[in-house]
Structures are given as structure tokens and as C-alpha cells.
């Protein structure tokens, strides 16, 4: 158990190396502000030219409740100011009691037998977090919504993904990738993004929950107002889970800052210093 906590800390520390390098404090142009000049995060949701909500902006998943984060990383919420992750970043099954877990018994047994360190995390090799983990990270990402395509730029590893909204269908047997192949369509004011074509190498969370190439991810993005977005993620992977399950992330607009360059490969030499069983 203690090893596991150390592992989680290492994962967190390895990634947001630039969190304190605030050299980008240019006020975000064009955002609503209150009379005192502060961003008005409760202003109404902006709309694109086609009348749909405009999701564009810099977003970051809200940290989990301190009492839950403490459960995974004791002593971490001591006010040090470090960016804390979502509870789902630490454990995607955070909502479930052990006896209600949707994890297939054979997969659970493997995890139990080997612990979360039975395999080396891709992050230790500076490989991508992959979806959906990268979108839950304690690091910002930028949405750029255009007709026909929405791009997500992730600060983590300076990587991106594209969501096609031009009406195309999901490919039948795509080449497996870390971020998958995504198409989106509007359901009222909610952008529904479906993704498949994942490889089986990324981890779903810092705990080491894995998934198969059969995983399908459905995200429902709903921008509640200017500064708040709700993202419901549904994971359907019959080779890993007995049933589909959903988590709900709260994401907060990050005003007056921007993405920084982050290349993990600079730290790839750290691997030899990690201890695991």
C-alpha cells in the first residue's frame, strides 16, 4: 500500500514540471469581465456562429475533494499549492465500493496479484497518457472549436487530438493509437464525442487500471456557463469491465494564462532511478 502511494506521487511529480513557471500572464482577450476587471466565470455560455455552444478555451479538470485525495495520497492536501488531480485521475473506479466494482474478476485478480507495479507505467518511458487520462490530468488543455473539427491541445507532452464533426462515421478497424479516433455530434447543447481505435497500452488512471483495444469512450461535453464545463465520460470495454460505467468531471476555464511547452522526453533518463517490485 505504501509503495502504491509513492508511485502515485512520482507519477504526479513527473508530469507537471512547469506548473510554477508562470511566464504567461497575458490577459486572455475577449473574455467577459466584471467591473473590477476580473474574469466573469459565471457569464453565459458563448455561442459559435452556427448557434451551438462554443467550447473553445483553456480548461482544466477540477481537483477532487480533499478527503478523497487524502485517501489516495496521505498528506498531499497540506496547502502546498501544488495542483491536485481529480480523484478519477488517481482511480477511475473511485466512485465504486470494492464489492460493486465493474472490473472483471479475472482482470481484478491480475491487478491484485501483481499490484499496480506489475508493469511499468508508459509515463516512465515518456509515452503518452492517452485518452481519457490526459483529459483528467492536473494540467490545462485548450479546445479550439471550428466548423467540421474541434481540436484539443494538451499541455501534457505538447500533444493533441482531433474530433471530427463533419458527419463522418467512426472507422471500422482503425490502427490502434494512444488517443484513438474521435467523431462528435451535437445532442442539443451537448457535444457528444465517440472514440475508438485505442491501443491497449495506456493506463486509465495512476493506479494502473488498464484497458483493451476494444474500449469505446463516449464523452458528453456540456458548457454550463462561461467558466464551467461538465464532461461525462462513459467507458465501455467488455474485455476489462463487466458493464459500461460513467464518471463526471468538472472542468474549469483557466483565464489569463496559456499552455506551456512540455516535453517529457527530457526526463526519460529518470526511469533507471524508479524502484518497483
Amino acid at each position: 500500500m505504501r509503495n502504491q502511494n509513492i508511485w502515485i506521487l512520482i507519477t504526479l511529480l513527473a508530469a507537471p514540471a512547469f506548473v510554477h513557471a508562470q511566464w504567461l500572464n497575458y490577459p486572455t482577450p475577449g473574455i467577459p469581465r466584471t467591473p473590477d476587471g476580473k474574469p466573469n466565470l459565471s457569464a453565459k455560455t458563448p455561442r459559435a456562429a452556427d448557434g451551438k455552444p462554443d467550447l473553445s478555451g483553456l480548461w482544466q479538470t477540477e481537483p477532487g475533494p480533499p478527503e478523497i485525495i487524502e485517501r489516495y495520497i496521505p498528506g498531499s492536501t497540506n496547502g502546498s499549492g501544488d495542483a491536485m488531480p481529480s480523484q478519477y485521475f488517481l482511480n477511475i473506479l473511485s466512485d465504486f465500493k470494492p464489492e460493486e466494482s465493474p472490473l472483471r474478476p479475472d482482470v481484478a485478480a491480475l491487478l491484485q496479484q501483481h499490484g499496480p507495479t506489475y508493469n511499468v507505467s508508459p509515463l516512465w518511458h515518456c509515452l503518452p497518457e492517452g485518452m481519457p487520462l490526459v483529459e483528467m490530468s492536473p494540467a490545462p488543455y485548450k479546445i479550439i472549436q471550428k466548423p467540421g473539427m474541434t481540436a484539443m491541445l494538451y499541455e501534457r507532452d505538447t500533444t493533441f487530438r482531433q474530433v471530427y464533426t463533419d458527419g463522418r462515421k467512426l472507422p471500422v478497424d482503425p490502427q490502434p493509437t494512444w488517443l484513438g479516433y474521435s467523431v462528435g455530434k451535437w445532442d442539443g447543447d451537448t457535444l457528444v464525442v465517440e472514440t475508438l481505435g485505442f491501443n491497449d497500452r495506456s493506463w486509465l488512471d495512476a493506479r494502473g487500471h488498464t484497458h483493451s483495444e476494444a474500449m469505446r469512450l463516449t464523452e458528453r461535453f456540456r458548457r454550463l456557463d462561461f467558466g464551467h464545463m461538465e464532461v461525462q465520460m462513459t467507458i465501455d470495454d467488455p474485455k476489462t469491465f463487466t458493464r459500461p460505467f460513467s464518471i463526471k468531471l468538472k472542468q474549469l476555464l483557466q483565464p489569463d494564462t496559456d499552455l506551456l511547452e512540455d516535453f517529457c522526453a527530457e526526463n526519460e533518463k529518470d526511469l533507471i532511478h524508479y524502484e518497483h517490485k
Binding site: 518511458h125 515518456c126 509515452l127 503518452p128 500533444t159 482531433q162 490502427q175 493509437t177 494512444w178 488517443l179 522526453a265 526519460e268
Partner: peptide, 9 residues
């Protein structure tokens, strides 16, 4: 664009 993650470090 096709995802091209460099893994040949």
C-alpha cells in the same frame, strides 16, 4: 494526420 508517437528513443 495519423498519430505518430515517437517510441524509438
Amino acid at each position: 494526420l495519423i498519430e505518430a508517437i515517437c517510441e524509438n528513443e
